[in-house]
């Protein structure tokens, strides 16, 4: 199974390195939104209260761009059927695409998060471990639901339009949990990272297992 996940991940990166379709648009988007937020939210002492929300808003919107393109390669020549035909656990297709989306998101965050700290002249927090955990769990939750819905929307006519409509309501717990856990990591008064990290772990587990189990059926109807 891991071998198949790696094969799918490797194929996605090969395609991306050749076309630079996703990385280019994600990078431009994240730079634009970071500078826009930097200009419209000047550095203030109470910035810490809305800083986590700004960072996650940027990550979610950039992620949306990436997710909407993540099955474009498969849709072009019905490659999902090629994958369904191969003798592999179809759940591995979900995990492979998830791994690929996660890598894109992590790469985006590696640019976005330091940039946000720099633009807002924000001192890095004392709780690095908690911040990294909040980022990792929030990103995993966003990517797992996003990968499932992107696969479902890939074959539909208005998939790129429908994806955000379907995704954001489902992502609400991740959005709230990730923002609150990040706020806790940044030492915002009243924010308890621990509770929210537990919620994120539970959410991530559910949305790792459910799509994995559903994917076999899903690939039949795509």
């Amino acid at each position: 199974m891991l071998r198949d996940v790696w094969t799918i991940l490797r194929k996605d990166w090969q395609a991306e390195l050749r076309t630079q379709e996703m990385a280019g648009s994600l990078l431009v988007f994240i730079l634009l939104i970071a500078f826009l937020f930097g200009l419209t939210f000047p550095a203030r002492r109470d910035l810490v209260y809305f800083f986590p929300g700004l960072v996650w808003t940027a990550i979610f919107f950039a992620g949306m761009l990436g997710l909407s393109r993540s099955f474009a390669g498969e849709a072009r020549s019905d490659c999902m059927k090629g994958l369904a035909l191969a003798p592999l656990d179809r759940g591995a297709v979900f995990l492979g695409k998830l791994a690929s989306n996660l890598l894109f998101l992590v790469a985006t965050e590696l640019v976005a998060v330091p940039l946000f700290f720099a633009l807002f002249d924000f001192s890095p927090p004392g709780h690095w471990g908690t911040l990294v955990a909040a980022l990792a769990l929030g990103t995993l939750g966003f990517a797992s639901v996003g990968t499932l819905l992107a696969a479902m929307m890939a074959g539909t006519k208005r998939g790129e339009f429908l994806l955000p409509l379907a995704l954001f309501p489902l992502e609400m717990p991740v959005a709230v949990g990730a923002v609150e856990a990040t706020a806790g990591a940044l030492g915002v008064a009243g924010a308890h990272a621990g509770h929210w990290l537990k919620l994120l772990v539970a959410y991530d587990l559910i949305f790792l297992v459910v799509p994995y189990l559903l994917f076999d059926y899903l690939m039949e109807v795509l």
């Binding site: 194929k11 090969q14 395609a15 076309t19 390669g73 020549s77 003798p87």
Partner: peptide
């Protein structure tokens, strides 16, 4: 199966496409 659609990735080369499927078929 040879279907109406090719199940091939446009961004990959001919060799890379076959290599991808060769890996999936072990």
């Amino acid at each position: 199966l040879v279907a109406h659609r090719s199940f091939l990735y446009g961004a990959l080369t001919a060799r890379e496409n076959l290599d991808f499927y060769a890996r999936l078929y072990r």
